[in-house]
Amino acid sequence: MVKSEESSRIIITVLGHDRVGIIAGIATILAEAGINILDISQTILQGFFTMVMVADMSGSSLDIARLRELLNEKGREMALQITVQHEDIFNFMHRI
């Protein structure tokens, strides 16, 4: 049974057309908030950009709702779909 309810790790996903500065833009927001990036995986298929990022919020100055707002704003600016989810959702849904 998953024991990590209410852990401090989050998953950020980014979908959209590839362009310069996607990771930089997101990483800047995270760095300013004191959020540590643990893992990044990205693929580009025919110009379509998909990125999944695992980050640790334990030292964050923002709560997850505020971070989501900031990243959504960034997403609108760069024409990307950015989602921020708690790690627990994925653990619950895909692992027992």
């Binding site: 998953i11 996903t13 643990l38 999944v52 989810q85 994925f90 692992r95």
Partner: peptide, 19 residues
């Protein structure tokens, strides 16, 4: 705890919630 969820699984969940 290592993170063991695959990218496809993550995108599947995100899709369920967003669309």
């Amino acid at each position: 705890m290592p993170f063991s969820i695959s990218k496809d699984e993550i995108l599947e969940t995100v899709n369920m919630l967003s669309t």
